[in-house]
């Protein structure tokens, strides 16, 4: 690979998640499911969560798309197992900030492995790929909070 930008975009960790996605299977016991698609390019996922009280007991997904969209959602689901709703929401917001070029967010260790996706922010047309899973997560949380009529806290 001779382009530094490409090296930063296609880090080994991303390719590894693309080839071996985590948590990619139907979740029979799901309490919420969000179907998110990008009609422009055809990427799509169904994010399935089993929410118990104030936390996500299980997170799985099915779908297809490019390496960026699939790696991002795979990494995301590894972070969601057992996560509190409020923490999941914060993670989604922080990740979105990093994608929009916020350098402080990109330094935030709380993003963990997801920081490998920082290079995507340099490719404006690919940002929506990285955000597909997190957009679904935010929809799911909104739906969950709406259903119980409360707020995330």
């Amino acid at each position: 690979m001779n382009s530094p930008q490409l090296s930063s975009l296609y880090q080994q960790l991303i390719l590894e998640h693309y080839r071996n996605p985590r948590n990619k299977e139907e979740l029979d016991a799901k309490t919420v499911e969000i179907h998110m698609a990008n009609p422009v390019c055809g990427d799509e996922i169904r994010l399935q969560l089993r929410i118990e009280g104030d936390h996500i007991a299980e997170a799985k997904f099915v779908g297809s798309g490019c390496s960026i969209s699939q790696a991002a959602v795979s990494m995301m689901t590894t972070r969601l197992q057992g996560a509190k709703l409020v923490d999941a929401d914060a993670l989604a917001k922080r990740f979105t900030e990093m994608m929009h070029g916020d350098e402080i967010a990109a330094q935030d260790k709380s993003l963990g492995d997801l920081r490998a996706l920082e290079g995507v922010s340099k490719f404006p047309v690919r940002i929506k790929c990285a955000l597909l899973g997190f957009d679904a997560l935010q929809e799911a949380l909104k739906k969950e909070v709406g259903d119980v009529g409360g707020e995330l806290h």
Binding site: Q5, L6, Y10, R19, V40, G42, G65, S67, F123
Partner: peptide, 27 residues
Amino acid sequence: GDAHPHDISTILDMDGVAVRAGHHCAQ
């Protein structure tokens, strides 16, 4: 191979080669 067409298009674009990737309005 396993490369998704979007990834193909991004990598080609870095080489100055413009191709379309997607469903081409023909799902």
